[in-house]
């Protein structure tokens, strides 16, 4: 079976989640790889949530919010706009491929844009292959190295 990436999408309920609905009702093809999580605002997506998604085996994380100036809460997406680039460079520094995390703006009327972003992102992540971020418990290699050095 060919590799299919698991992608977590954090969708703002006021814009991109509705945009996803619109893409559906308009019968647009968008990649099924996206597991959407509905959040009240893209500003709700804390860095810990994104890291948790990668920890649990996501191959890519897509954060979609309202365009700047259209936030339901006036400035929630301002915080996302400032937060994500910093988190992006931090996770890149810690060894994540930068392409696996993306921030986008999709309004409720942009079903077509939603489908395009999801498809593009899925293609990019599929190209990268499985993500090596996930770690289960202690690292066998490290443990083995310690055991061997003690013998």
């Amino acid at each position: 079976m060919t590799y299919e990436p698991r992608i977590i999408g954090f969708l703002c309920t006021w814009c991109s989640y509705t945009g996803a609905d619109l893409a559906g009702t308009a019968r647009l093809q968008s990649a099924w790889n996206l597991r959407s999580i509905r959040v009240p605002c893209s500003g709700r997506v804390s860095p810990e949530l994104i890291m948790k998604a990668f920890d649990q085996g996501a191959d890519g994380v897509l954060v979609l919010g309202c365009h700047i100036g259209e936030c339901h809460y006036d400035n929630g997406n301002h915080r996302t706009a400032k937060r994500l680039p910093v988190l992006h460079s931090l996770m890149e520094f810690a060894g994540l491929e930068p392409e696996r995390l993306r921030l986008g703006w999709v309004s409720a009327s942009e079903g077509e844009r939603f489908a395009r972003i999801v498809n593009e992102f899925t293609d990019v992540v599929r190209e990268l292959g499985p993500c090596s971020w996930q770690q289960n418990g202690h690292r066998p290699q490290a443990v083995r190295a310690i055991l061997e050095s003690e013998v």
Partner: peptide, 25 residues
């Protein structure tokens, strides 16, 4: 429910990266 305080590598990495992030700026 979503941030572990355990001693697994995942959780330790999240702690350090998260703490670094909280100190950004």
């Amino acid at each position: 429910q979503w941030i572990g305080m355990g001693n697994g590598l995942n959780e330790k990495r999240t702690f350090h990266l998260g703490r670094a992030y909280h100190l950004a700026g």
